[in-house]
Amino acid sequence: MAKDIYHKTVKTALIKDGWTITDDPLRLKFGGRMTYVDLGAEKLLAAEKQGQRIAIEIKSFLNPSPIKDLEQALGQYILYSQVLETLKLNYQLYLAIPQKVFSDFLSEELPQLIINLNSLKLFTFHPEREEVIQWIN
Rank of each mutant, 00 (worst) to 15 (best):
D4G: 12
H7F: 13
H7C: 07
V10P: 01
K11H: 05
T12Y: 11
L14K: 03
I15N: 08
D17G: 05
G18R: 03
G18L: 07
I21H: 05
D23P: 00
D24F: 04
P25E: 09
L26T: 04
R27M: 11
R27P: 02
R27D: 13
R27L: 10
M34P: 00
V37M: 12
D38S: 10
G40S: 11
G40C: 06
L44N: 10
E48M: 07
K49N: 14
G51I: 06
Q52A: 13
I56G: 06
I56N: 02
I56M: 12
I56A: 15
E57P: 02
K59Q: 14
K59A: 11
K59S: 10
P64F: 00
G75S: 14
L79I: 11
T86E: 14
L89I: 06
L89F: 02
Y91Q: 10
Q92M: 11
L93A: 02
Y94T: 06
L95I: 15
P98T: 08
Q99N: 12
K100I: 11
V101R: 09
S103L: 10
D104V: 08
F105C: 09
E108C: 01
E109V: 04
L110R: 07
P111W: 04
I115D: 00
L117G: 10
L117K: 11
L122V: 11
L122R: 03
E128S: 15
R129Q: 15
V132G: 10
I133E: 14
